[in-house]
């Protein structure tokens, strides 16, 4: 798989969870890359849930953090 395909595969996983209504609840970064904690509060149709993604590719780590920064800007988090 080309480097870019690896990024696309990871981006798809992130987008998939976000589209399902999950939110990023926490980020842990260490020697192995980034671990994203996703949480879904649930609604009348779905049960709450938690997911974890291990993100390896540098472009994916830029990608999720860009989303994080933008969302926090929108919500006025200081």
């Amino acid at each position: 798989m080309s480097d870019h395909r690896e990024f696309e595969a990871e981006r798809e996983k992130i987008d998939f969870l976000l589209e399902k209504g999950y939110v990023i609840k926490g980020v842990t970064e260490n020697l192995s890359g980034a671990f994203l904690e996703f949480e879904y509060k649930g609604n009348e149709h779905d049960q709450p849930g938690k997911e974890r993604l291990h993100i390896l590719h540098p472009d994916s780590r830029k990608y999720f953090s860009t989303i994080l920064v933008q969302q926090q800007k929108k919500q006025g988090v200081k």
Binding site: L18, E19, G21, V23, I24, K25, G26, V27, T28, E29, K62, S65, I67, L68, V69, Q71, Q72, Q75, V77, K78
Partner: peptide
């Protein structure tokens, strides 16, 4: 900015709905 955002996400209850 990125590090501040990651710090804030981990320390407060940010509702990150896309």
């Amino acid at each position: 900015e990125r590090q501040a955002a990651i710090g804030a996400a981990s320390s407060c209850d940010v509702n990150l709905i896309k």
